[in-house]
Design a binder for these strands. Sequence first.
DNA 1: TTGAAAGCGCTAACAA
DNA 2: TTGTTAGCGCTTTCAA
Lengths: 358, 358
Amino acid sequence: MPSVAKKKATIYDLSALCGASASTISAVLNGSWRERRIKESTARKIQQLAAEQGYQVNLQARGLRSARSGLVGLLLPVHDNRYFSSMAQYFQAQVRARGQCPLVVSGGRNHNEERQLVQRLISYAIDGLLIVGSTNPDALHEICENAGVPHINIDLPGNKTASVISDNYQGAYLLTQAIIKQAQYTAPVLANEVYLFGGHDDHASQERIHGFLVAKKEMLGESNTRCICSTGYSPAMTEQAFSAFYKQYKQLPRAFFVNSSINLEGLLRFLAQYPASLFNNLVVGCYDYDPFASFLPFPLFMIRQDSAAMIARGLELLDTQATQLTPTIYRITPQLVAPRTALTGPLDELQSPTFLKD
Amino acid sequence: MPSVAKKKATIYDLSALCGASASTISAVLNGSWRERRIKESTARKIQQLAAEQGYQVNLQARGLRSARSGLVGLLLPVHDNRYFSSMAQYFQAQVRARGQCPLVVSGGRNHNEERQLVQRLISYAIDGLLIVGSTNPDALHEICENAGVPHINIDLPGNKTASVISDNYQGAYLLTQAIIKQAQYTAPVLANEVYLFGGHDDHASQERIHGFLVAKKEMLGESNTRCICSTGYSPAMTEQAFSAFYKQYKQLPRAFFVNSSINLEGLLRFLAQYPASLFNNLVVGCYDYDPFASFLPFPLFMIRQDSAAMIARGLELLDTQATQLTPTIYRITPQLVAPRTALTGPLDELQSPTFLKD
DNA sequence: TTGAAAGCGCTAACAA
DNA sequence: TTGTTAGCGCTTTCAA
């Protein structure tokens, strides 16, 4: 660097410049000056001086002294996904509005990685943590609990602290009804022609499978097989699942339910290997919403989970967190989205940027 | 909390427990013990003790003392976008691999917000910052420079520090060629039937417009109008742009180039208002890649920018940052993606999670 | 090979 | 209404 970085001003520098003591400066600059009964005029003077000098608090020092950092953590499974990244978007806005700083990390659905990240965040003295979609939230709970860090589970519930989740049963029920009805427009549908792809051993999947089975039974009666194909949480593994199915049955099911947009991506990888004309009559449901997916060339019903509400509720709960014997699970109602629907999202709430003028 | 958080162990607690001094403990626990010529056996002993006691460094204290935090910042325009969120994904992985902690924030393309965020990050003593897609990177440069924080521009270049950008001219040239060729399969194409939607006054847009115009001229000759429609950076504004075009011409262009996936979302909002059959012959190019968009029911060519390479180069440069009179701009070649193509992404590099077993 | 001591920049009692 | 003082938990000379 050419102009070597000027050493940053401290409250002592300001103190030397204006004669007030460091503690007065501190109080003025951190907003506690009214309680400290500091004269309005001194406060103004100091604020002006600070501005002139380009003073910036050292938040590490403040955090060290006060044992809180102003950082609020969001632990996601992955960034690269519309559902989770919209959570990040809302989280960032809401945390900033509270005057804190968002710290968004992703653990790649790897439990070890998640543990390490949480440890790390705690080492930075985060003031709170939202844990999204962890497959072992209770282990993370122990870590947070030991460190006295308030934390809430989002999307996948735990048994040790409050959780905010999508109403997976309800969403799956609606989604299943929708795809069956759609398939029935073409021809009557049999119970064993409707499948679910996904279904791991986590809570969300259980509930979705339940909703799927109930809706199916109500509309089509009992089937002799469960019609559930396990995929993984990656596009590649999902592609394999579809390939395997296709190899065995020489076709895809009349209608099927896909557990998330990540799985849906796997379906596309599968489809890409064949001419588009081969799968003309697909009817698909996806438990996730993606604006582009909604316009795919087959009827695709989706569920949009209300990530704004989930984040808002999660942040609220961080403040009120009282440990209960049986921690509450808050269910947030998701929305069924018909094919060819372009919903608005978090980006629509951004301020109009300056280039609007032209 | 029921079991009130045990006060966290400090190096002094460990010191009391094992008789070694705080400075010895410190050296052992931060890895500098070999240089300090501490006996292997004492080191082992202390490490074991620390593990037993569940000791965790206080990174605020370490940071305060050593004037670095181990935090590396990534400032994005928005989270909720495949291009930027894939950057976040790669960034997180690479920063973690370097033993540091990623701090991803988004400024919503609002310059004030960006300034505040950068100030904030600096207050946390970040060790470096990648500035992605800022419309005024040079103003942010001043702030970082004053604080002595190494920083690199990504995606949109600045004049004050090195920048890593997509080769926008080349990408736009290829994309334009592709959509014109595609449209020509149906019938000959005139120069004024091919449009570009997007085009703000930033560097990337300029270069893309240039590539678009050159490719068009080469293939179709000069046209009497420029065929460029300004949209904003939001889906809503883009929808308006398409509506306005449609109102005026009663149709969309034979082939057109859309500046980003955010603009493409605006196109879908427009399309959603009409029956699908009305726009059967669209040929579209999008300067961004989205796996779902690739399977839309019209030929959609896309450009995938190499976010992995951009982030990797950016992080490399952070280490070597020497201010130059004319800071270098590194261009990263993007990839033309044919319709119906499902590329792999950052999620494919994640470790296989444990539930693979079933 | 280790320990003692000073101090990073801030906040919060306690005095004045 | 303001100043003095003692740390927060760590790193880093300097001594031993």
